[in-house]
Simulated scan of single mutants.
Amino acid sequence: MQAKKDEILKAHAYRRAIKEFEPEQKITNEDFEFILEVGRHSPSSFGWEPWKFVVVQNKDLREKLSGPSWGAQKQLASASHFVVLLARKGDEMRAGSEYLKYKSQQIDKLPAEVEEMKVGFFKNFMENEFDLTDDRKIFDWACKQVYLPFANMMTAAAQIGIDSCPIEGFDRAKVEELLAAEGVVDTKRLGVAAMVAFGYRKEDSPFPQSRFPMEEVVDWVN
């Protein structure tokens, strides 16, 4: 057990936000499928899984994305795999939507009375507890859910020696416009939450990883 703990902490300590990857060193299909599978198994509020992952391997599309993605210039050019993480928009996530019906009935296979109860709880949560009352608030909430598989995929990658870089440095409207024009994303239903690049670092960072000490991060209430 201690060996496993040490292995996990070592992976986290080694992980960096890599700005440039070794372009000739590619992740195997088996390893990348593992990373995606970890993302797929991630938890979400109410179990709605309000996400989709687009793996962009097309070089022409990557080059086009580099225009509105100022924070991903070197990563788009050098990463072995580049993922755009999408979150579902307002109409998709409102109680009674076709997406939530599909998830409840076809994926979760809930009995009708359980589905009705769950959707009722969710509607109350949205309208009365979390103030998810307009399209932007709902989308932002869905983006928060996307960060669960987002983080899990990077952690899983680090544990098998694969580097990554989380990216928020982009013009969301322009990226969505581009992806819609390319026929990649239906932007009426999905919006861009974040991006993440995977590969193998070109060189080690000259700066050691720094974090707040535990006593500044954690408060205990006993």
Rank of each mutant, 00 (worst) to 15 (best):
K174N: 07
E177V: 03
E203V: 15
P68E: 04
P166H: 04
F21I: 07
Q57H: 01
D204Y: 13
Y14A: 15
G90R: 09
P111G: 06
A173I: 14
K123P: 00
F82T: 03
E92I: 01
P166C: 05
Y102C: 04
T133P: 01
K123T: 03
S69A: 13
V184Y: 05
Q105F: 02
K19A: 07
A72T: 03
F198Y: 14
D135G: 05
E129W: 09
I8W: 12
D31F: 12
D163A: 10
I18A: 06
K109D: 15
G67T: 14
F125G: 11
P213L: 11
F82P: 05
D134T: 08
K26T: 10
V55G: 09
P213E: 14
G191F: 07
V38R: 09
K52M: 01
N152M: 13
F207V: 12
Q106A: 15
Y99C: 07
L65M: 10
T133K: 10
A180N: 06
F130E: 10
L100M: 09
L65I: 00
N128I: 06
F53M: 02
H81G: 05
A95N: 09
M93H: 06
A13Q: 13
G47E: 08
V83R: 00
M154K: 06
S104C: 11
L178T: 03
K109A: 12
A112Y: 02
F150Q: 10
F198Q: 00
V54S: 12
L179N: 08
D186P: 05
F121E: 11
N29T: 06
W141M: 05
L85K: 02
R189C: 12
W51F: 07
F212D: 03
E63G: 02
E176Q: 14
R88W: 01
M1F: 08
M214G: 02
V114M: 14
S104I: 02
V114I: 09
K137G: 02
K118S: 10
E20V: 07
L132N: 03
L179G: 10
A13C: 01
R88C: 04
K101E: 11
D108Q: 13
E22N: 11
K174T: 05
F170R: 03
